[in-house]
Write a protein that binds this DNA or RNA. Structure first.
Length: 291
DNA sequence: TACACGTGGAC
DNA sequence: TGTCCAAGTGT
């Protein structure tokens, strides 16, 4: 069975079933796409939607973003999570303005050099915004390929050379078709071939899926690392930054002390936020979002 | 290569 | 109710 037999059913399904998301509209700029991709890193679409609209209403171009302080980006980020992304998106806007004349670069290597842009995001922007032929390997695509091609329930913990080869092998020859293919496979992973309860009855490639053909065997490998949160430095950092975000200006140390009782952990977390550039310690002993 | 890094919704 | 999961990146 040639792998290209997957193309038509996937592309046909996407043509009629794709969600209407703002960053996919024809008039979405490369900046729009970049903002969406950074926001969507580890964050569900439904939570990104309102944040995305507000962000671009305030900063419709990289130059507009670059003119404001990084702390304003952190504040505007709100409760999306992983606020370092806000800092990096701001830094990317500065870099785009300085190095690329305010235009989001269309070359993969130039994209990869931007802060907060890794292998996936560089491919996504090159593909979705500039219609280039790049394999996009996000968690959705990796899961779909793991099931359809490899016949297993879940992909490996980190992206492997085998997965990259599979993604490249499956890429349609025509660049524009390849770009649509990428977002289409992602969409199947997001709304049909979900992690917990795949809806094989609604899947356009169910009859070609190795995992389904094998009877949907359960994941058989090393335990997937579970993420802890309660009581961690991460939770503490979130509490501290929330105080800064919601204050109109600099805050006293006492305001930070009030949200986390463990002094040792609190100081460690605060030091971490300062080291990450998310918090500015002021000479007067107060703390602020970076200026 | 593992690990750190937020937040909240679903089951 | 606690676990799992969500369009990853940087170190």
């Amino acid at each position: 069975m040639p792998e290209s037999s997957l193309h038509a059913p996937v592309l046909d399904w996407y043509a009629t079933h794709q969600r209407d998301l703002p960053w996919r509209r024809p008039d979405a700029s490369a900046w729009d796409v970049l903002v969406s991709e950074i926001m969507l890193q580890q964050t569900p679409v439904v939570r990104v939607l309102p944040a995305y609209v507000a962000w671009l209403a305030r900063w419709p171009t990289p130059a507009a973003q670059a003119k404001d302080a990084p702390g304003e980006a952190v504040r505007q980020w709100g409760r999306l999570g992983y606020p370092r992304r806000a800092l990096r998106l701001h830094a990317a806007a500065v870099a785009i303005t300085a190095r690329h004349d305010g235009v989001v670069p269309d070359e993969y290597e130039a994209l990869l050099a931007l802060p907060g842009v890794g292998e996936y995001t560089a491919s996504a922007v090159a593909s979705f915004a500039y219609r280039q032929r790049h394999p996009v390997l996000d968690t959705n695509v990796r899961r779909v390929l793991a099931r359809v091609v490899a016949g297993v329930q879940y992909p490996p913990q980190s992206t492997t050379a085998t997965e990259r080869r599979t993604a490249v092998d499956l890429l349609p020859e025509d660049a524009d078709t390849a770009a649509t293919w990428g977002v289409a496979v992602m969409e199947i992973g997001a709304v049909v071939c979900s992690a917990r309860s795949p809806r094989c009855d609604d899947c356009p490639i169910a009859t070609l899926c190795a995992w389904r053909l094998a009877g949907r065997p359960a994941y058989d490998g090393p335990a997937r690392r579970r993420q802890t949160y309660e009581g961690t430095d991460r939770q503490c950092r979130g509490r501290l930054l929330k105080v800064l975000r919601e204050a109109p200006g600099p805050v006293r140390r006492s305001a930070l002390e009030a949200v986390w009782p463990d002094a040792v952990q609190r100081e460690r977390a605060l030091d971490g936020l300062v080291a990450d550039g998310l918090v500015d310690p002021l000479p007067n002993g107060r703390f602020a979002l970076p200026g």
